[in-house]
């Protein structure tokens, strides 16, 4: 087959699967956004707690810190594909099912929240201790230090961290396709892997690459705007 023929045949195939491709892209984005939002709501406060409860910080809680640290390490050590199956009882308990979009969201959140907690933790640890001290000296409460110092000073880094989290979610969401969550991963597996349709695989990958690049660019430009 010549090069032109190959491109032509891929193009024809793209047109043919366009409806599925659009649907899968939409599903992936939906999965990523929902999972990211919920994971952020859990992960960011958890990350803040990981920082302020450590020894010598503004709300020292030795045991909370140790236990939270351990649990996060354990979850982070489990590969997503195993985590997804390991927590099926939990998933069923929360959303009543282990399949489709709903069934995929729960393991994605469990996977991503500790990740976001770590991202938040490392960003917040970068804040100069002297600044925190200056605010303590001004009579700031722990809550004021969290909102007016820690999160405010690191908002640019936090946006980059959330971008990384979103991108790692795209990868995980592809695996979630296995449980019928749909999305681009599901498409690639069904057509590309199980039916040996290499061209569909290539097209799906292309969409994923564009998606990742797009997200990274958006994240970078927002972070740049926030950074002064």
């Amino acid at each position: 087959m010549t090069e032109t023929n190959l491109l032509q045949s891929i193009w024809l195939r793209v047109l043919e699967i366009a409806p599925q491709l659009t649907k899968a892209t939409y599903e992936t984005l939906l999965m990523v956004m929902i999972a990211l939002s919920i994971a952020a709501v859990i992960g960011i406060p958890l990350g803040v707690l990981l920082v302020i409860t450590r020894p010598g910080h503004i709300w020292e809680q030795k045991w909370f810190y140790k236990i939270a640290n351990l649990i996060i390490n354990i979850i982070r050590a489990i590969p997503f594909i195993i985590l997804m199956f390991a927590i099926t009882p939990f998933t069923r308990l929360i959303v009543g099912t282990t399949i489709q979009l709903k069934g995929a969201i729960v393991p994605l959140v469990v996977f991503t929240a500790p990740f976001i907690a770590r991202v938040t933790e490392s960003a917040l640890l970068e804040v100069n201790k002297g600044i925190i001290e200056a605010f303590l000296a001004m009579g700031a409460s722990p809550w004021q230090i969290i909102t007016k110092v820690l999160l405010k000073e690191t908002r640019s880094t936090m946006v980059l961290g959330m971008t990384i989290s979103a991108i790692s979610l795209i990868g995980a969401s592809a695996m979630a396709g296995v449980v019928g969550g749909g999305g681009l991963g599901d498409l690639a597996i069904r057509y590309g892997y199980q039916r040996y349709e290499g061209d569909v695989m290539v097209v799906t990958l292309a969409v994923l690459i564009i998606m990742v690049m797009g997200m990274q660019n958006i994240g970078n430009s927002i972070a740049k705007k926030l950074k002064k």
Partner: peptide, 13 residues
């Protein structure tokens, strides 16, 4: 009030 050797200002503000 307190002031410090290294000023301790919010860098992003």
């Amino acid at each position: 009030g307190m002031i410090f050797q290294h000023f301790n200002l919010l860098e992003t503000c």
